[in-house]
């Protein structure tokens, strides 16, 4: 039995809903660490960054599902909804920390969203994810049919906006945000279908 087969066999036994449980633990853990003063001396920034980075990593994980199957045969499609919803959850947590623990001042929040490109872009990414989260259920998949697939292509835009948001907030020329952006561009690039020569009838 090949490695891929055994991976697929093992993952098939994991009920997808368990990902929600595992996925939410870091959020709760970081928040707890922040409350008890163990997130360093600037816990608000740390929490904000941790949630944001986890969100981006989950979005990237979601983008990996299809290429992974295509190139290796590892099938994780059963977990893609959970990965996507967890990504949305972390983006939402990231936003909540920014709103209620970081900026806090309504006037400044609104001004920031309108005036600061990196916040505008981050916010736009979040807005893109809302309809995706709302339609991440079997009922919507049935109801929307083919349009569901089209709608969920918004992920590509959202994840790109997320990466740009990260790149734009860096001070100086920093490597990490660029690596995220690079990984995302590669994963998006893999999805571009090159025009094929016309098939003989």
């Amino acid at each position: 039995m090949s490695l891929v087969d055994s991976i697929n066999r093992t993952t098939r036994r994991i009920p997808p809903w368990t990902l929600y449980i595992v996925g939410v633990i870091p959020a709760a853990w970081y928040f707890y660490l922040g409350v008890v003063g163990r997130l360093g001396v600037d816990p608000v920034k740390e929490l904000e960054h941790s949630y944001g980075e986890l969100a981006l990593q989950l979005l990237i994980a979601g983008l990996c599902v299809t290429p992974l199957r295509r190139f290796t045969g590892i099938a994780l499609i059963r977990f893609r909804r959970q990965i996507g919803l967890l990504a949305f959850f972390y983006v939402f947590c990231h936003l909540l920390v920014w709103l209620f623990l970081d900026v806090q001042i309504l006037g400044q929040i609104w001004a920031d969203i309108l005036k600061r490109p990196y916040i505008t872009i981050g916010m736009a990414g979040f807005v893109c994810l809302i309809p995706l989260a709302v339609t991440s259920n079997n009922f919507s998949v049935r109801k929307l049919g083919r349009r569901w697939r089209t709608l969920h292509k918004l992920t590509y835009l959202a994840v790109l906006l997320g990466a740009i948001h990260f790149v734009l907030l860096a001070k100086g020329f920093q490597l990490e945000p660029l690596l995220y952006l690079g990984a995302i561009l590669v994963l998006l690039g893999l999805r571009i279908r090159l025009p094929r020569r016309a098939q003989p009838a």
Partner: peptide, 12 residues
């Protein structure tokens, strides 16, 4: 500004 050392709920 966020004064360092105020904890998670200190605000600005």
């Amino acid at each position: 500004e966020r004064p360092i050392g105020g904890g998670i709920f200190a605000g600005r």
